[in-house]
Simulated assay, not measured.
Amino acid sequence: MNPDAVRTAERVPHGGETDRDVLDFSANTNPSSPDSVDRVYTEALERSRRYPDDDYSAFRAAAGEFVDCEAERVIPTPGGLAAIRLAMETTLETGDEALVPYPSFGEYAREVELQGASPRFVPHDELFDVDDGTLEACALAVLCTPNNPTGEAADPDAVADFARRCERADTVLLVDEAFLGFTELPSAVRLESERVIVARSLTKLFGLPGLRAGFAVASSERRDALETARRAWSLGTPAAAVGAHCLRDDAFVRETRDRVDAERDRMRAALESRFDVFPSDAPYLLCDVGERAVEDVIDAARDDGVAIRDATTFRGLDSHVRVAVKDRAANDRLLAALGVLEDDDDD
């Protein structure tokens, strides 16, 4: 990390509501968690009187099975963002450039800058079309799939083609799959390229954002660099135990995917009566509120006890809000707060 960059860097705004009396649709987390999480956490908390086993063999095995790769390729991290930082710390040098999509997760540009490098912004839907010269000029390219906040997932074949281009350009491709677990799409870990690093977050899919558990996946010397650079005891004992438990709960994952798919379609149909809504493969929907003031839409929802995300903090967006997809009862409260809830004759 570059000391001079740290002195000039700023924090990035995020969703997340601290008022427990407000229904939080500003953060894209699952409202449910797998069964027995409390028991697993409690048992692990007792074991926390000693340092964790720094090998994290059970966590690595569960993560490897979840994304379909060898356990030894998994690098445990305290959340997906920690995996992103680790990838950038081991890739970027002062003066480098990194290809950063927009609108997308604001931490990419911040993490690039903290390394003393410079982000080269490209529209997220034009990332795969950048010319070879641009790609060769960048030490790193970032792909977010599904993209946050727009919600669409990249075609796996297109990702593979872009990864091959990155390899020829000697550019590292960082694929952020924080929300890919909500889909049936395969992970980019299948590419097994030394130029590809995958970052995964557990806590969104499993509804435990405060637990801070995630991992990176890489191959060959890239994997060795990440493993050497990661902090010792990078996961607390409870996070490692609960994370491994959640990753093995296939039934929970299937149920979550089915619910999110059905509710997202229902919510989009309702929201389109008032807003322009982006297509999405993710547990959130980006809405263009048009000529309405974003602040007025957010304030009106909050008056009804619902927090939604101000998406104008994302580069390139100026009239947008983002809403999460939760369970049916919570989603109905959101739709009512936004004035788009219609009566359902089946209820």
Rank of each mutant, 00 (worst) to 15 (best):
M267S: 07
L335C: 01
E177N: 05
E89W: 03
N331T: 06
T228F: 11
G16C: 06
L285T: 12
V321E: 09
D155G: 10
S48K: 08
R264G: 14
F179G: 00
F215E: 02
I84A: 11
L143K: 04
A240S: 15
Y102M: 02
V6R: 14
P101F: 01
V321T: 08
F59H: 07
A71G: 05
D55R: 15
G236S: 13
S48G: 08
S201K: 12
R168P: 03
A154L: 11
V277L: 07
V323L: 02
C246E: 01
V294L: 03
K204H: 14
T145Y: 02
V67C: 12
A82D: 08
S187N: 08
R168D: 15
A240N: 11
P146M: 09
R47P: 08
S234C: 15
P149R: 13
A199G: 05
L208T: 14
S193G: 10
L341R: 10
R20D: 12
V321R: 07
G236Q: 07
F206H: 05
V40F: 04
A169V: 10
K326L: 06
C246F: 03
L45W: 15
R257H: 12
L338T: 08
R49C: 10
A62M: 04
P31A: 03
V12M: 14
E107G: 08
